[in-house]
Design a protein around this nucleic acid. Structure first.
Lengths: 148, 148
DNA sequence: AGAGATGGTCAAGTTGCTTGACTACTGTGA
DNA sequence: TCACAGTAGTCAAGCAACTTGACCATCTCT
């Protein structure tokens, strides 16, 4: 594969990712969950279903634990999560989603489905499955990087 | 398609995009082009091959023209681009890449090829072509959003 | 029990973006 | 032809999300 082809593939992938991010975010806002940024969504994904500590969240997001702590402050203040004492470590605090936080993740799933639907109409259900399979196989295990 | 499936597809896509962004950036740095962020890459893509005005760049990046102007200041100061008088409009200035800027875009293409190569080994050349085709068909025409 | 490692927060500084205000130039219509 | 609304670009100030550095409480290992 030539370099220019790799770049074309990369550009298409990044363009789709940017569009998808924007659509999910817009859909979440449209469902009444305001004051959130896309980075919060990546945090919510790590907090379901069993919660996580600030340090785990920081590793997942690829930021410092101070930044993760500030982000938790924010979603706690807005009622999406709460801090509980950690059952096994008195230093740590377990951050868990509230009912509103869970409702927000469901809204994000709906928004994602809305965003993907036009792809299915364009490519067909079968091709979408193929896309899902391909992406899953090349997806990394490391931290999701919420900024570029 | 269920919401949770759409979310899984979205998560895989965003994870791959994040990883790809990081790898391209690292590859560019490894080839000796420092002091750049991924957002600069999106700008370079718009500046090739014929240059662009600050306002066009701002629209492409989805930011204000002040932010685009600051970004141009930065890449001019670092020797990647230069401002020229616009041939047809005395208000505007045409921002064009220097030789170093072009060399940097070639480095980015090489880095993209390096990043994609392991995918080809995993999926096979044929599947990569399919992926390229699928993504190209669902890629938006609007501004690339360099932040989420 | 003591020493080093780890979880979390407070404080201060950096930076990339925003909004607001302004100048220079364009082009359209009376 | 010339006034005027619109556009290109910059300067300035403010904001918000992140960073680095310092610190205390608690865990873990020997």
């Amino acid at each position: 594969m030539q370099n220019s082809e790799a770049m074309a593939l990369s550009a298409a992938l990044l363009a789709v990712a940017g569009e998808l991010t924007q659509r999910i975010h817009d859909g979440v806002v449209a469902r009444g969950f305001e004051g959130l940024r896309p980075a919060h969504g990546f945090a919510f994904a790590r907090l379901t279903p069993d919660g996580a500590t600030v340090t785990e969240l920081a590793a997942h997001l690829g930021v410092t634990k101070q930044a993760a702590s500030q982000l938790v402050d924010e979603i706690v203040r807005k009622g999406y999560a709460e801090r509980r004492p950690h059952p096994a470590d008195a230093r740590a605090r377990l951050v868990v989603l509230t009912g509103r936080g869970l409702a927000c993740t469901r809204a994000a799933e709906e928004a994602a489905a809305d965003a993907v639907r036009p792809w299915a109409e364009l490519l067909g259900e079968r091709e979408i499955r193929a896309l899902q399979g391909q992406l899953s196989r090349i997806a990394p295990y490391g931290p999701v990087r919420p900024a570029w």
